[in-house]
Design a protein around this nucleic acid. Structure first.
Lengths: 240, 240
DNA sequence: CCTCTTGCGTCAATGCTGTTGACATAAGGG
DNA sequence: CCCTTATGTCAACAGCATTGACGCAAGAGG
């Protein structure tokens, strides 16, 4: 069997039920399936049924299911970063990247649970990596350092976003129970055994909120402090 | 079928191959399977084969496979923080907390990947939160700030640890493909379209490594910079 | 010591899952 | 208009979790 996943398709044939398949349509249907019925609903058989085609037809478009998952992940990235143009302030640009990625994951929490820990190797991700490393190099970091710190930055962003998405993907009951936990369980503790928690008692409900922005801001603060071009403005040393 | 998972067992019968099953033995065998043959080796069939019993016998001990995974995860949690005593240096103490959590997750990635986004509300977690907030208050932070920053810290640690565990939990093929991705795909890019990636080409293989320590160190750096008691030593203002 | 109950290991079956090789049909270039 | 071949379909395989029925034997009661 030669390459089942050709680059371009000139001979598009409708399926028995009349649908014209395409990579985009499959990815969108997969995203919809996951959104409606949870991540476990993404199987070639269900996808085939939802699309009105034989399950094996999908292998004409994706090498295997993992390939499909990566395509879905890359679509989320692309949607999140669509229209993004970094300005002059590299810190602000990285901050917006962080917020956009998080928003993208929260828009598809159940798909994010599946996709958030993967390297997609596809166009949208590559463009995002290019932009991020360029921003850090414009801050004066050497290429090696820029790569390391970009990785630390984007891993923090993706990890937090995945956590927030996983929380958002929980059933309402579990989600609210988790939120109440910080108020209920942590309120009646032995002051002797837990002095710090007792002192901070009134502040604990805030634990239910996401620490995403605090974490990102702290990280960017440390990066700004270490940046050779210390003035938060892009040096344009690397151009564009 | 009445409760297949009784609390106590008085009538223990050896399996056909002579093994006496028990919850502990099953959990240990599961951990061993994962350790020896990778996370994908944990299936009721393989576990049955490894134990020398019919796969369905496991359902006498665990309600379903998720129940089994949680039982395994439960054993992991206690191990990670066992014997931890924070010293005088609050930054070093938080750093060790981070490393311990990550090590505990990485030791048993598949179980960790499943359990890592939940609030346990149990003793070990509460003690860790107490210790962490106490450390930040000893650095001079107000209770409200200490709570916020502890959340940012522990969320970063848990999220990164979950990411690393999720990666380690991938099937071998996908894991190796993800690692190769940075070397293969990102090497032959159009220098015009991707100047930063081209400049950093030689450094990209490092992207396959974990950014955990960089991220934690950057975060602790920012916290130390913001700490009112700026000398990295605990003030003992909060006691303990 | 025998008998009866029932816990628990075993077997077989169900219905999922991904994946692939062979086949048929129609699209569209020459 | 015909021929190549891309692409949708079909059937089959192997592996997965799970469960109901079955029967052996462990251990309690007499």
């Amino acid at each position: 069997m030669p390459s089942r996943v050709p680059q371009e398709r000139s001979r598009r044939r409708p399926t028995r039920s009349g649908v014209l398949l395409s990579e985009d349509l499959i990815v969108e249907t997969g995203l919809r399936l996951i959104g409606e019925h949870g991540p476990e609903a993404l199987s070639v058989r269900r996808l085939g049924a939802a699309l009105g085609c034989d399950p094996s037809a999908l292998y004409r478009y994706f090498h295997d299911t993992d390939d499909l998952v990566l395509a879905i992940a890359d679509r989320i990235i692309g949607d999140a970063m669509a229209g993004f143009e970094p300005g002059d302030d590299w810190v602000a640009a990285l901050r917006e990247t962080a917020l956009r990625v998080r928003a993208g994951y929260l828009a598809h929490p159940r798909a994010a649970a599946l996709a958030s820990h993967r390297v997609t190797r596809r166009e949208n991700e590559i463009r995002a990596v290019e932009t991020g490393i360029a921003l850090l190099m414009s801050a004066g970091f050497e290429p090696a350092t820029a790569v390391r710190f970009y990785l630390a930055f984007i891993d923090t962003v993706l990890s937090h976003a995945a956590t927030d998405a996983a929380f958002a993907a929980l059933p309402r009951q579990q989600r609210e129970a988790d939120q109440r936990a910080w108020r209920d369980v942590y309120q009646d503790l032995d002051p002797q055994a837990y002095p710090a928690l007792t002192a901070a008692r009134g502040e604990l409900p805030g634990m239910a909120d996401s620490a995403f922005e605090d974490a990102v801001d702290l990280l960017l603060e440390a990066l700004a402090a270490r940046a050779p071009a210390n003035r938060r403005k892009r040096t344009d040393a690397v151009g564009r």
